[in-house]
């Protein structure tokens, strides 16, 4: 809705809204600056041992030196690849399995207890098995990532498929639609929002899976840096890798949000 002329009250309302938005941003950034500043200060003054707590400047230095010896993007690349591969496989496979379960009521009822048990199982318990099966390479970590994400993907999509409006199904059937047509023209398009929310959830799941995988078994990656840093008491390294992880995870989440905005806009027009 674009109106050329506003009432005075509306202009005031818009200004107040803008002001509020600015305030929120100032406070957000202010809190970050305050935390970083305080952290830097207490470690610089020696109130807290920077060897244990690290500090923003030491994190920056560590990242710079990682960059200098060329290992920064190597480790980021390894973790990112594992995360994205695991994410993609979990999403696609989860979607396919959910479709299968939607298609056949009997199959769904047969498999339900298995899915419930696998969902409840802490995946990390499978760590030793995964090492034996997949070795210590990236495959093991991708497998762990898939394992963490796929059940969530299945359950989320299945509940969306099963929750398709019964009246719309009745309408389709009254037109003589077969199951394939109902799937193609009704179930899939109407579960569009669920796909987006599933992607969002699975971004988080993929990071959990890949870092957990790297904790158990790895020779490279951000999770590896964290574990290694912890073992040799290089807390600067632990903090740096954690920081990079924060940035990457946030970035990936925002990408999905952007995707969602683009898609929803496209769908609603």
């Amino acid at each position: 809705m674009k109106h050329q002329s506003f009432s005075h009250e509306h202009a005031l309302y818009l200004r107040a809204r803008k002001k509020n938005l600015a305030l929120v941003w100032i406070l957000r950034l202010g809190i970050l600056a305050l935390l970083l500043g305080a952290w830097e200060l207490v470690t610089a003054l020696g109130w807290i041992d920077p060897f244990i707590m690290s500090s923003p400047s030491r994190i920056a230095k560590t990242i710079a030196s990682l960059y200098a010896d060329g290992s920064l993007f190597y480790h980021i690349g390894v973790t990112l690849w594992e995360t994205l591969a695991g994410f993609a496989i979990a999403v696609v496979l989860g979607f396919a399995v959910a479709l299968l379960l939607w298609w056949s009521d009997t199959v769904r009822r047969v498999l339900e207890p298995y899915i419930v048990v696998i969902n409840a199982l802490p995946k990390i318990a499978l760590g030793p098995l995964i090492i034996v099966w997949f070795g210590t390479g990236s495959e093991a970590i991708v497998f762990m990532t898939v394992l963490v994400g796929i059940i969530v993907a299945i359950m989320h999509m299945l509940s969306a498929f099963v929750g398709t409006d019964q009246n719309k199904i009745l309408l389709m059937r009254s037109m003589g639609a077969n199951k394939w047509q109902i799937l193609q023209k009704l179930v899939l398009p109407s579960s569009y929002p669920a796909v987006i929310s599933m992607l969002k959830i699975n971004v988080g799941m993929a990071w959990i899976g890949s870092i957990m995988g790297e904790y158990i078994v790895s020779r490279a990656g951000l999770g590896y840096l964290i574990v290694y840093g912890g073992q040799v008491f290089k807390l600067d390294l632990v903090m740096s890798a954690t920081f990079i992880l924060c940035v990457l995870a946030a970035g990936m989440y925002f990408l999905v949000v952007l995707l969602e905005k683009a898609l929803v806009k496209n769908a609603e027009r």
Partner: peptide, 11 residues
């Protein structure tokens, strides 16, 4: 068949 609601597909 015509139902209680229009059941038009919003997309």
């Amino acid at each position: 068949y015509m139902l209680q609601k229009d059941e038009l597909f919003p997309w």
